[in-house]
Amino acid sequence: MNFWNHLHHPRAAMVVLRITLALLLLFHGWSKITGGIGGIEKMVASHGLPHWLAYAVYLGEVVAPLLLLIGVWVVPAALVVVVNMLVALVLVHSGHFLSIGSSGGWALELQAFFLVTALVVAMGYSKGK
């Protein structure tokens, strides 16, 4: 048997990806829980939106990652993360699309990772057989 065949476990790979996304996003959510969302409220209001919409960040960075972590409502949770990241890109990072970070990478590589990973989880998740 070919060595690479031992590494082919698509369902396990999806679990690893889903859990990684959840854990990394929960750090951001914890920051919002402990530090508040005052800055986000100001950004939302500066775009002419009601300040209470800022509380949706808790859905995208706490509730959805917890659902991903425990494997419940995985596709809707991943899609909430996708929407959360699109909103973050528009509200917070719209001026950084062509920027390079201090380490030489794209300034938005973390946001891109969260967005694309959530999209892959939503597209590739199956309950298994």
Rank of each mutant, 00 (worst) to 15 (best):
V44M: 08
V121R: 03
V87F: 05
L17E: 06
L25C: 06
V92T: 12
V75R: 15
G95F: 07
E61M: 11
L21E: 07
L21P: 03
L68K: 04
V116F: 12
A12K: 10
L25P: 00
A13G: 15
V57G: 06
A13N: 11
V81G: 01
T20V: 02
T117N: 03
V82E: 08
W106E: 09
E41R: 15
H93G: 04
Y58F: 14
F3V: 14
H47T: 11
L115F: 14
M14G: 13
I37L: 10
R11C: 05
L23V: 15
G29R: 02
L17A: 14
L17H: 02
I19Q: 05
V57I: 14
V82H: 04
P65V: 02
K42T: 12
L21R: 01
G48K: 15
M85W: 01
P50D: 08
A13D: 12
G38L: 09
L66I: 11
L17P: 02
A122N: 08
L108K: 05
M14C: 05
N2Q: 14
G101H: 08
G95W: 05
S126K: 05
G48D: 12
P65C: 13
A118N: 04
H28E: 10
V80I: 15
E109H: 06
A107E: 15
H8Q: 14
P10N: 10
I40Q: 02
L49D: 02
L21K: 02
M1S: 11
A112H: 10
L59D: 01
L79A: 02
K32A: 11
I19C: 13
L24I: 04
N2T: 12
L86K: 06
E109A: 08
S94L: 05
H8F: 12
H47D: 10
S99W: 00
L68Y: 04
K32G: 00
M14K: 05
L110S: 11
G48Q: 13
P65W: 01
F3N: 13
G60I: 03
G60Q: 03
L79S: 08
G39R: 11
G124E: 09
I100V: 15
M123E: 03
N84A: 13
L17F: 03
V90M: 10
F97P: 06
S103K: 07
Y55K: 13
L119P: 02
E41H: 08
A107P: 03
H8R: 14
H6G: 15
H93P: 00
V75T: 15
G39A: 08
L89D: 12
